[in-house]
Structures are given as structure tokens and as C-alpha cells.
Design a binder for these strands. Structure first.
Lengths: 218, 218
DNA sequence: CTTATATTCTACCATTTAATAGAATGATGG
DNA sequence: CCATCATTCTATTAAATGGTAGAATATAAG
């Protein structure tokens, strides 16, 4: 009887690791590709010491591993399934927590809500790519792009968007993507490009979900 | 920036809810079918007050809902996907937490380990059933069986196993199943039936996983 | 209207978690 | 070997969580 409870308690370590917003932010960053502690601390807006402590927690939950490379510790997700786990949590939360809807719409609040900003699903994107009618735009920072991206995507980090407009076609549909469904980068990019007359839509997921679905990456 | 963190904090409520062994026990019971607080408290070995508090926590995480039926509150999983979520957590834990292996083998420790107790997978079970060569035995308590079971399964709760042997064939393979991979009931049943000369194997998952896979239930 | 039953809520205490600042460790490069 | 840089560890504090016992609430039944 206590054996069973010990087992459930150990399993609960996984849940515990998932039970903190900062740790979810760290996982989202790690889903883009491996990273050192300082990088992780910066993207999750934590002090290095605090980030390190959270990473230990994620380690105890079996969600990440680390290995040393010179002076740095490079952290990875242990497993591609963790991206799936996070997606499932999002699904469950969006379906069952009233709070979520409000928060999601507030996160994307600058929406001019002319209805035109509707996101494109993975299936639609795939068929668009197969037809060759879509240009893919990755608006994540360069290091994340380098660590892996969708095939044939162009990388224009959001800050450089206006400076690199000449890389984008005016006469083809563009699909912008970033880190995942709760990442605002692609949303912001779509708004700014639309204002300039481009035909752009947002991919409703991100690089990690694409990769976890077993689709090809570069 | 705080919008994003609020959203992640809310999402973390789901993780928090999964981050406690007693709550996982409650969820496992609810995966068998709806139940009232006292039933849940008994199966999870908690006081009613404490079970109620944990159930509120699961509610806040969007994992369960409740509605009143007379004097009782009947709790349900909000979603079949929660069974998938739990399976994924198990997979991740078994792959990445060294601790788990030890605990799983200790849970099933009475194993005479003659190698014969190897469990049967869902695919194998399905093909056995299609060939009609397998008798299905559900060793869960009657109320859980009544709330849903695999097609054509015979219900013999573990306590009544020896008293109801005449329902079981000696000349056909029997597959015993129960609540899930960490449920010892079917394991215990297999051991006892083998000692009596039956050809029995254990299904390596349980009723909830079968149902969540979209397979037919009665 | 009173009583009994099922559940939730409240108040309290012990334990765990999260955060901070600063010390300690490990690896690299002069 | 010494200085530097990246990370982890060690207090310390504030807040959240988990547990218990008993009061409060809601429904049903007499």
C-alpha cells in the first residue's frame, strides 16, 4: 500500500515540475532547442540563481537534462514527448478553465479584430506549402532559428522586421510563426506587415509543435 | 509581459493539480468512472475533508467537475484527454526517472519472476480478441465494472476470485485487466490463477487507457 | 420543522516552495 | 597558479500547501 503511494508520489514529481509558470517558460524556451543557464534565465526573466534552482526542479521531474560544455551547462528537454505533454496541458486548460480564454485574448489584445487575423492550422499550412503558394517567415531570434526551423523558412527576428522587408514577397501569401501558440512574436509581425500591405497570416502553433508532430525540420 | 506570465501561471494550475500523489490516486479512480466524495476518499485512503480539499484543487486545475445528485456530489474527469495526460506523464517518468523502475518493480514484487508473467499489449490483446481465442477477465470491484468495461469481459472482483472459478475456462487463454498499469489487482489475480493451472496473462494497461484509445466499451 | 447525511468551509499548525544575496565550485586562459 | 566566468549551493525569509478537527451548509426524509 505504501509502495503504491511512493510510486504515485514519484510520478507527482513530474506534475510538480509542471506546476509553476516560470518553469513552463523555461520549458517553452527549451522546446526551441538546447540552451545555457544564462540564456534561459534571460528569456524567462529570472535571476541566474533562481533559474538554476528551477532547472534542478525540472531535472528531478525528469523533464530536462544537462551536460557541461566548457564553462557552460547546456540544458535540453529529455524527450520530444514533453512538447506533447505541454500541448495537452494547454488543450485541457483552454477547454476547462474559464480564466484561460480571457488571458489568451488579453495576451493578443492589440488585435485590431477586423477578423482578418485568423490563424492558419498545421493542416492548412501543409497543403499551402505543398502547393508552393506560401512563404514561411520565422520571427524568432536568430539563435533559436539556427537551432532548428521549418524547411525553407526565412528568418527575420521581429526587431529587424522593417529593416529586412526586401526579403519578403508582396504578391504571395506569407505565414509567420514563432515559439508556439502563446508566443506573441508572430502575432506582432502579422499586424505590422499587414499595415504595410502584405498578405500575412499567423501559424497557430510554433516550431516545437511542428517538430513534435514528426514533420521535417532544418 | 505580465500578461504572458499570468497565462503561464494559470496553465501551471493544471500542473499543480497533477503534482501530488493523492490527487493522482483520485484521478486514477475517476478514470474508472464518476464517483462521490466518500467513495473517492476511501479508494485514495484519505479523510473525507481532505479528499474534498484535493478535489477542489483538481477543479481549479480544470481536471474534474462535479454536480450534485441528491445529497451527494458526483465527480467526473472533465475530459477523456486527462487519461492521455496521465499516460504521458507515466511514460516520461518511466523513461527519465531512475527511481521509477525500482518502485514499479517493488510494487509488483511478489512476482515469482519465472518470466512467465509478461504482460500483453493492447495490440496483442486486440488480435487475440479478433481471433476469439481470449477470455477477458475484469478483476475490479463491481461498481467500477458497472460504470464501464471492455466488451464481453467477465467481472470477478479479486476478493471473490476463488469463489467464482467456475466462470473461467481452463482450456483457453485468459487476459486479466484492472485500473491501469500501476494497479496490482490483475497482477495478483494472474499469480493466483496461474498457481491453479490457468493460462493467464495480464493486460499491461487498464480500462481507462482502452477507453481513451477510442476502443469500444460497454 | 427536525433530524440525519454528504460535503464544504474555517482555523490552526507543520512542511514545502520560491525568491534573494552571497559564498563555493568547476573550467578556461593567461 | 591566479583571475575570470558560468553555474550551483547555502542560508534566510515570505508565501503556499497539506493535513486535522470541528463548524457550517445543503439536501432528503420523517
Amino acid at each position: 500500500m505504501t509502495d503504491r503511494q511512493d510510486l504515485l508520489d514519484t510520478l507527482a514529481q513530474v506534475g510538480k515540475a509542471l506546476g509553476n509558470g516560470h518553469r513552463l517558460a523555461l520549458l517553452e524556451r527549451l522546446a526551441q532547442g538546447e540552451a545555457a543557464v544564462e540564456t534561459l534565465a534571460t528569456t524567462a526573466d529570472l535571476t541566474v540563481g533562481n533559474a538554476s534552482a528551477h532547472l534542478q526542479h525540472l531535472r528531478r521531474g525528469g523533464l530536462v537534462t544537462a551536460n557541461r560544455s566548457g564553462k557552460q551547462m547546456i540544458y535540453h528537454l529529455t524527450d520530444q514527448r514533453i512538447v506533447t505533454l505541454l500541448s495537452l496541458m494547454r488543450d485541457v486548460a483552454e477547454t476547462n478553465l474559464a480564466e484561460m480564454e480571457r488571458l489568451v485574448s488579453r495576451l493578443f489584445a492589440e488585435d485590431n479584430s477586423d477578423g482578418a487575423l485568423e490563424a492558419i492550422s498545421q493542416d492548412e499550412l501543409l497543403s499551402g506549402l505543398r502547393r508552393g503558394s506560401v512563404t514561411l517567415l520565422d520571427v524568432r531570434p536568430e539563435d533559436e532559428f539556427e537551432a532548428g526551423h521549418l524547411p525553407d523558412a526565412i528568418n527575420i527576428p521581429l526587431e529587424q522586421l522593417e529593416a529586412m522587408l526586401d526579403e519578403l514577397p508582396k504578391d504571395r501569401e506569407i505565414v509567420a510563426y514563432c515559439r508556439g501558440p502563446y508566443c506573441v512574436l508572430s502575432h506582432e509581425a502579422v499586424q505590422r506587415l499587414r499595415a504595410l500591405g502584405y498578405q500575412v497570416r499567423r501559424f497557430d502553433e510554433g516550431f516545437p509543435e511542428w517538430k513534435a508532430a514528426g514533420l521535417p525540420v532544418h
